[in-house]
Design a protein around this nucleic acid. Structure first.
Length: 535
RNA sequence: AGCGGGGUAGGGCAGCCAGGAGUGCCCGUCGGGCUCAUAACCCGAAGGUCGGAGGUUCAAAUCCUCUCCCCGCUACCA
């Protein structure tokens, strides 16, 4: 019995298996069947999409460490999912409308568009500097976004979910801004010190109150809708207290998306900004990415990303994102909020230039449990660089490469990776941690393996060994470093590349985190030291 | 006031949701080993009444109640 293979005159090769033209014997049919399974599995991985976003930044002033942190976290997740072989779309960007921008531009003597055009450069620069692998940088002033924002506004209006009403509040004519009662200082405008007026103006309202039940239901039913879990409980409690209708347009703000049905109004910034997640993939070939898998946001804007965003989406008949992840804040060494007036604001660009991009990425991802607040200090950063990056990881790579050069002529020897060492890599745990978005733990687990490798060297003392015994130890190490390089790639992409180039290998996928895949005879070349110590 | 987070060795943390000998990590201190390596690496030791008081339990850092400190948030502002 056999199967005739058509269309491959010279036979073909797949996944390392060779098939000749002609009839296949039973063995070969079995091989083909197993290949089919492999292809099918990989295909489903390949078809899997993963859409991740950061919140879009408000470019009223230059980016600080908090902006950097959010992008780094989202980037690591995006890279991890690419490593899994999924189709990833990663979006970040800027939220460029609103009174504050309008005012800042006026102060700078610029028109708002020029002002944001200049400011946005800093944010794009930040992405580059930090090795952020975003597929798109969206700007809410882009035509594409404005179009979608208006479409949704109109859709909700036509449906009857947006109605014309009256908005009232404390208004300062000089600022052309509304203030809440607590913003006022003795009833005066905080910036001008002049008396604020209680005025009423026309405004469109979104019937958010109608969606309370559905929003609540979604939050309660879907355990992963908001993470970490504590945040979900928090938001459930708040939603239970009730949703009010939301003012979604302003007549006194002209720097915004014009309300399509009434150009006297502009859309309220959140009615504009939130829609970026959807508008970003509202073009051909990208629509498959909706709904988003994760919105990575700061804990301060969780309300907007659940109550408001969910209501809008439900009203518009659009699927809800799977997870909104609220990360914490980076505070000062003393645990206080960074503040401009106290001069405690950290410039991420400066830190990255001074200590290295991967060092700052590693520090933030490892030091701060994802979802909680964390403290930043140069001291703590240095400690981690010197100990974990230089001594443990950098030195492991260095001592291994040096031994390969010294004892094996700069080539990977033949051998098999020590089975006891293999067991020290807890790949399932790492995967599990990443799945749960516990990146700090995933990193700890990866570094536990790095430690195991260092211990392995001490225990085996390859400098005392000879011949095959020594080769086996060195092969084990090189092979392990190859795996380590893959695993750290999402967190420290630059370092991973450096290691790979020393081993003369290509970037791997997570599927390559198996042992004994390193080919012997591969040339090994000592490169620059991965992490220099800082005093 | 309400809601939330935190109080664990000299310092910094994890562990708590799904209870099981104070279990772990980093820095620091002390002692030892190694010499391939970025004066790196490995092993060991000292050091804690897990903020306090009750309770549930065979068993509590972990669950419940009360209490004392510290820090945020209170939205329709960006």
């Amino acid at each position: 019995m056999g199967i005739l293979i058509w269309g491959f005159p010279k036979g073909f090769e797949m996944a390392g298996q060779k098939f000749q033209l002609g009839y296949l014997d039973f063995q070969e049919v079995l091989k083909l069947c197993s290949l089919y399974v492999i292809i099918k599995e990989n295909l489903s991985e390949f078809m899997k999409t993963f859409y991740i976003t950061t919140a879009i930044d408000y470019p009223s002033s230059k980016p600080h460490l908090g902006h950097a942190y959010e992008k780094i976290c989202a980037d690591a997740l995006a890279r991890w999912h690419r490593l899994l072989g999924e189709q990833v779309f990663f979006q970040t960007g800027t939220d460029e409308h609103g009174t504050k921008i309008q005012r800042k531009a006026k102060e700078a003597g610029k028109d708002p568009q020029n002002f944001v055009d200049e400011m946005v450069v800093y944010f794009e620069e930040l992405c580059k500097k930090l090795d952020i692998s975003n597929d798109k940088f969206i700007r809410t002033t882009s035509k594409e976004h404005v179009k979608v924002a208006q479409e949704i506004f109109k859709k909700l209006h036509d449906k009857g979910d947006i109605y014309l009403g009256e908005y009232s509040g404390w208004y300062c004519a000089d600022c052309e801004t509304f203030y809440t009662e607590k913003d006022l200082v003795d009833g005066n405008c905080p910036t001008h010190g002049k008396k604020a007026d209680w005025i009423k103006e026309e405004s469109y309202f979104f019937k958010m109150s109608s969606y309370q039940k559905q929003v609540l239901e979604h939050l309660e039913k879907n355990k992963e809708s908001v993470l970490p879990s504590g945040r979900r409980k928090e938001i459930v409690n708040r939603v239970k207290q009730g949703l009010n209708d939301l003012s979604v347009s302003r007549v006194n703000v002209n720097w915004g998306v014009p309300v399509p049905i009434n150009p006297k109004h502009t859309q309220y910034v959140w009615m504009d900004a939130l829609l970026n997640y959807y508008s970003g993939v509202k073009e051909k070939d990208l629509e498959k990415f909706w709904p988003a898998n994760v919105h990575v946001i700061g804990k301060d804007i969780l309300w907007h990303h659940t109550a408001i965003w969910y209501s809008i989406l439900i009203a518009a008949g659009i699927k809800l994102p799977k997870t909104v992840f609220a990360h914490g804040f980076i505070n000062t060494e003393a645990g206080d909020k960074m503040s401009k007036s106290k001069g405690t604001v950290i410039d991420p660009i400066e830190i990255a230039s001074g200590y290295g991009v991967d060092a700052i990425r590693y520090f933030l991802l490892r030091e701060v449990p994802f979802g909680q607040d964390g403290n930043f200090s140069i001291e703590a950063l240095k400690t981690r660089i010197n100990n974990e990056l230089a001594n443990e990881l950098g030195n492991l790579v260095n001592r291994t490469i040096v031994m390969l050069e010294k004892y094996c002529g700069g080539k990977i020897p033949k051998g098999e990776t020590d089975s006891a060492l293999q067991k020290q890599l807890k790949l399932d745990k790492i995967k599990d941690r990443m799945e749960k978005l516990e990146m700090h733990f995933a990193l700890a687990e990866i570094f536990a393996f790095i430690s195991a490798c260092n211990k392995f060297i001490n225990d085996k003392a390859p400098w005392k060994l000879e011949g095959k015994e020594r080769e086996k130890v060195l092969y084990s190490l090189a092979d392990s470093i190859r795996v380590i390089s893959i695993l750290i790639a999402p967190f420290m992409p630059g370092t991973s590349k450096k290691i790979n180039s020393q081993l003369s290998i290509k970037d791997g996928k997570l599927a390559d985190c198996k042992f004994n895949l390193l080919k012997s005879e591969t040339k090994v070349e000592r490169g620059e030291i991965l992490f220099k110590k800082t005093e």
